[in-house]
């Protein structure tokens, strides 16, 4: 699949366009409807995190979402130039414990990790932040 990308302004109105862009590509790559929905949701969560935390809803900033498909691997990378946020430091919560305290934030990172096969953060001072979400196409046999 040819690499493709879109750029959006850092505002939540744009999430619907991101989901459409990603769903279309995932479908074309051969994922089932269920997996297409999972990928779109994971990317929505990653972009929401950037808009909210890295850019604090500053609509003058931009995010780039690029998609690369190679063999059975479908990779979506979200690039931003905002504040550094390293969710690698966020431990996978014990959901039972978490829910019993009625906490409302932090569900996004957990969802991303549950819905995708790999979530990688590339954070280097002086370069754009990147989060790469990978899902593998199930084998056909």
């Amino acid at each position: 699949m040819k690499e493709r990308s879109i750029q959006i302004e850092s505002k939540t109105e744009e999430l619907i366009a991101v989901r459409d862009f990603v769903s279309h590509a995932a479908q074309e790559f051969g994922f089932s409807d269920e997996d297409v929905s999972k990928i779109a949701l994971a990317v929505d969560e990653a972009c929401t995190n950037v808009i909210k935390h890295a850019y604090s809803y500053d609509a003058t900033k931009n995010l780039k979402i690029s998609i690369r498909g190679a063999k059975n691997s479908f990779e979506v990378t979200i690039h931003d130039n905002g504040r550094i946020f390293d969710p690698n430091g966020v431990k996978r919560p014990d959901m039972k414990e978490y829910l019993s305290h009625f906490r409302k934030g932090g569900l996004g990172v957990y969802l991303m990790k549950s819905l995708m096969d790999k979530v990688e953060y590339n954070i280097r001072p002086g370069s754009p932040n990147q989060v790469k979400l990978t899902k593998y196409l199930p084998s056909q046999n």
């Binding site: 949701l41 009625f102 906490r103 409302k104 934030g105 569900l107 996004g108 957990y110 969802l111």
Partner: peptide, 16 residues
């Protein structure tokens, strides 16, 4: 048709 963690968070915010 669709819910993300932002939507789920609303239920969490009010149920208590």
């Amino acid at each position: 048709s669709y819910i993300s963690s932002a939507g789920l968070g609303v239920f969490m915010a009010f149920v208590e």
